[in-house]
Simulated assay, not measured.
Amino acid sequence: MNITINDELRTYVDPLTPAEHEALERSLLTEGCREALILWRDVLIDGHNRYAICSQHGIPFRTVQNDSFDSIEDVKLWMIDNQLARRSVTDFQRGLMALRKKEILAARVVQKSDDELQTEADQAVPFSPPWNTRQEVARAARVSANTISQIERIQKAAAPELVDAVRSGAISISSAANVASLPREAQVAAVAGGKKELQQAARQVREQKSAAKPKKDVDTGTPEEQVKALKAQVAELKDRVATLINENEVLKQKLVLLGEA
């Protein structure tokens, strides 16, 4: 059987953590490969980790064909939807996948001509590209629109070391978005300093932004403006609470270690 590994597809989703890889390997060695690997033509599109482990240990496996795709972009969309449906995927991973889906769909719209987008019957109806708003992307990723905005900031400005810290859970999405506004060298230094240093860097950025931002009186303006201002304050407070909770957990762990010493 000829199975082709497409490196772009193999790395399209986040790799397993060492603990996850060990658990999968243990399961395959004990129970065998019960779930079939999925191929598109001869290209493996689902089951890369299982294939590698089975090949290493000589574990038999089955394959099934999925020929419903016309292009590699179709395969990517299918992989994204699979990831978005999984419970074990983190908010950050789901956000990244949803943004990738938006990029693919947007690129397809650009490639189409106006004649392809509209028929004579609906010429008067403005065409709205799929996933045209941040809210739609957030809904697919099951996170808030604000979280999607933060992930976009991380995508654009975060150093690879900071991205890895978000993936590992060493720093929250909201805090990482703040740290990403720092120069690349400062980001790397904060990551090297560990969780406490990352939290401190995020807090300093928030304080600088807060000091530079003129305070708005929520008692003035239209009711809509007051609601918007209050929601912004609530979001800021939630961000601060999340950071304080993380710092509290770090202190608790230190107390436990001191008690065991």
Rank of each mutant, 00 (worst) to 15 (best):
A180T: 03
G194K: 07
A158E: 06
A261F: 14
S71M: 01
R108I: 01
R203L: 12
L37Y: 07
Q187A: 05
I148M: 02
E31S: 04
A141N: 05
R167P: 01
V234I: 12
F127C: 05
K101Q: 12
P129N: 05
E22R: 12
E8S: 09
L105C: 05
F92S: 00
I245G: 01
P160L: 11
K238D: 15
E120R: 09
R87S: 08
I38C: 11
D14W: 07
D164E: 15
T222Y: 09
R26E: 12
K228P: 00
V109C: 09
S175V: 07
G47W: 06
R62M: 09
T133P: 00
E161I: 05
A165M: 10
S27W: 06
K231L: 12
E197A: 15
D239F: 08
R184I: 13
E152W: 04
I151Q: 09
K102F: 02
A141H: 02
I80T: 07
V179H: 09
N248P: 00
H57R: 03
S168D: 14
L182A: 07
D91V: 00
C54Q: 04
A186V: 08
N146E: 11
T133H: 01
Y51R: 08
R50E: 06
E225H: 10
V163I: 12
A98K: 02
H48D: 02
E25D: 09
A158W: 07
Q65Y: 05
W131S: 00
A121G: 03
A177G: 13
P15T: 12
S128C: 04
A261N: 13
I80D: 02
R41N: 13
A157L: 15
P60A: 05
T11G: 02
A211L: 13
A176V: 00
S71A: 03
T4Y: 06
E22V: 07
R100M: 06
A261K: 15
E224Q: 14
E152C: 03
L255T: 07
E8D: 14
A36N: 08
R108D: 11
L258Q: 14
I104G: 08
G58M: 03
V241Q: 12
G259N: 07
S71F: 00
R34H: 05
A85V: 08
